[in-house]
Design a protein around this nucleic acid. Structure first.
Lengths: 258, 258
DNA sequence: CGACTGATTGAGTTTCCTCAAGAACTGTGG
DNA sequence: CCACAGTTCTTGAGGAAACTCAATCAGTCG
């Protein structure tokens, strides 16, 4: 009887815990816990110290601030950017649920860029000291952390490849296509995009001016590829969008063959 | 007496070893050994397995190849680049003596980009398995390795900031200025640059076409900032060059406020 | 409701790309 | 050593793409 009660209360505690635990999180397989199981996962879970919410425009961390944690977007979205000494910005990326930010600070004692909420955003915080301890005890997590850093580097390289494109439309197409891809991985409809960032942010990210971005949206709408209504963008023709990402490539390829 | 002899032969071995050792390397303080001393340095030194030379155009490693070592440029220079499935390239960076390449492979089991010699180039190779073992034993080296990854990320972010600039001249100015900076750190004359990479590589790196780069060199020469003779570039007015790096900061600032 | 920010659209201009030709350098073979 | 072919670089002319400036419209917030 006493055992029964204990089991029941344990179950209750578990339920309460589960609601916030990594194991039960919808982002489980997209996040740091991917491939981590059992007691290892419990250890990681214990380090997820704080889950706080940020209002739109609020900074998660600022460039130059001392580094003490990694963060995962739980809901909402972030942008990361660097500020040159001159005062001009460069948007480095946009971060959706399940994506990890703050990796830039891992390598030094301070952050190399800033991160700011684009809408009301909730965050999982992983204090570095604790994470470091867990990773030293759990090799699988160490490897997973490396994979996360890797993902960051791949993302930066894709950004670079995109910035290297001369055609503005190609850049926007790649941006939207990648966003659509990430929606798919989150099991969200990849044809219904909600652009939480401003046109200025998009333009800056793409290395363009805001008017050009606006015109491109209109042009792609006229071409029947998108349906654009401010922040709500619907991809009507994913096939055409995909084609627009590599139009130039295909053209030069065809030239090379002929 | 017997002790004397042992000491002498040990000294001879040391001399032979020193010629190739990290401790006596001119790049000592710019490279992985920075801040590492004594027996820790000896351990690192023992992992520097192979020092090979590459002819111009030869690949150090190729995108997709399995990763098994980090490399340091000892003399000469490299370019790193990614190839899109479409077949178009994006140059990610140029690497001078003392700079480490291959960090992109650290995080996965294969390389994310390719690296190729721009001239006859000699390389220090650090096999990963051995390095991993040493870093696990030497915390100072672990930290230094993180600093190296950090440097890589900073470099990528600077590249991004540069690609975000709309003015082509600004991009080239930043490129030359950064190159000049790195020459300074190598105790080379920062006003006498030798561009081992082709104009095509520079153009690709800057997100421009080769004709534009060529014209910009001519224009900057006409403005008295540079003396250009193909691969030999002399910075006549470092002050003007520095100014050209941030001329349009104010303009882009307006775009960035959003 | 009015001021403000954000987004769109238009007109005009500049910059940079494209195409094309020629010059300078590199490497090879006679 | 020079001639050559091939590549790389430079320069010019023309045009297209993207930027600048300016006005308007649509949302948002106090």
């Amino acid at each position: 009887m006493a055992i029964e009660m204990t089991e029941n209360s344990a179950a209750l505690i578990d339920l309460d815990h589960l609601r916030r635990s990594c194991g039960s999180c919808a982002l489980h397989e997209l996040c740091l816990p991917a491939g981590i199981n059992g007691s290892d996962l419990d250890q990681l879970d214990a380090t997820v110290h704080d889950k706080r919410a940020l209002d739109r425009g609020k900074a998660l961390f600022r460039q130059g601030e001392s580094f003490h944690a990694l963060y995962v977007v739980r809901s909402g979205s972030l942008k990361s950017f660097v500020e040159s000494p001159g005062g001009d910005l460069q948007v480095l990326g946009f971060h959706l649920p399940g994506e990890i930010v703050g990796v830039d600070g891992l390598t030094k004692d301070h952050h190399l860029c800033s991160a700011e909420a684009l809408e009301r955003t909730s965050i999982c915080e992983l204090p570095y000291l604790q994470l470091q301890q867990v990773t030293s005890e759990v090799p699988a997590l160490q490897r997973q952390l490396m994979r996360v850093i890797s993902r960051e580097m791949v993302a930066e390289q894709s950004h670079m490849v995109m910035m290297g494109k001369q055609q503005a439309q190609e850049r926007l197409a790649i941006f939207l296509h990648s966003l659509s891809d990430r929606y798919g991985r989150l099991s969200r409809d990849p044809t219904v995009l909600t652009l939480s960032m401003s046109r200025y942010d998009i333009a800056n990210y793409l290395g363009l001016v805001v008017e050009t971005v606006s015109r491109l949206f209109s042009r792609m709408e006229a071409a029947g590829v998108l349906k654009v209504n401010r922040k709500a963008v619907r991809v009507l023709r994913p096939d055409l969008l995909a084609e627009m990402c590599g139009t130039h490539v295909a053209a030069s390829f065809r030239n090379a063959i002929g």
